[in-house]
Amino acid sequence: MPFDLNLNLILGQMVLGLVNGVFYAILSLGLAIIFGLLGVINFAHGVFFMLGAFLAYMLGATLGIGYWGSLLIAPVLVGLIGIVVEVLLIRRLYKIDHLYGLLLTLGLALAIEGLIRIVFGQQGVPYPIPPSLRGAVDIGFMLLPLYRVWVVVAGIVLCLATWFVIERTPLGAKLRAATDNPAMVQAFGINVPVMLTLTYAAGVALAGVGGVMAAPVMTIDPAMGTNIVIVVFAVVVIGGMGSIFGSIVTGLGLGLLEGLAKATFPSASSTVIFVAMVIILVLRPRGLFGKMA
């Protein structure tokens, strides 16, 4: 029986879908920021998500640093790795076709994933839910684990804070201006190369935050980034390449859609996002929130 219209099941799956949606939103937000300013389709984004999770695990296993400490430290370390990657590799590609950036970051993703696989093996490693977030809350139609409530709330706050910085602050104005006309922004006295480096670092650090938040609810394994980044690219395409607002709304919306599919037509749940992507691309090639080329 493919369809099951139990309302509680539907609502429950949609709430769980929202948790996935938060990860989609955080990751697609970083991708959108990087693509918007650097013009790089960062296929390595999923790997930085995976590195966030593995760094949280390593910080705990080697230094005894818990979840909250890792939530601060791991994204900073991911951002530093991002700086090295941008300075040594990505900046060489700014003046050539975007396709080369995609190829480079795809190769980089495969190399880093392979390295992690050599060190940690194919199997995943466990990461505990922090003690302060164990338990569940009764939301009427289901008992929702407290940690997932935290992920949803913190993830949405993080997305909105990022949106606020980009759309409502002088720093964000510089980023948006550099997206429009980087040469002129540099001619105004702003060091655009440094801005590009820091933007890439911030974008991948966001993925790192997502990775740490995902560690207690997903299996930490070398392929976790690759698995999620495929969906996240669909989110970015549906939302509109480079659209910050589109990334957030689409990420959360597609998480809900996936949850709905799990409750009503489980066998379609892994493909529903891609079906949505095809429909959007046919009807509105620039995405739901993308600007006309």
Binding site: P170, D180, F188, I190
Partner: peptide, 17 residues
């Protein structure tokens, strides 16, 4: 003139450091 389309008039004015 290089007026940035994604910025408001005030943001354009205050953009250069």
């Amino acid at each position: 003139r290089a007026i940035f389309p994604s910025l408001s008039v005030t943001e354009n004015l205050f953009l250069p450091p």
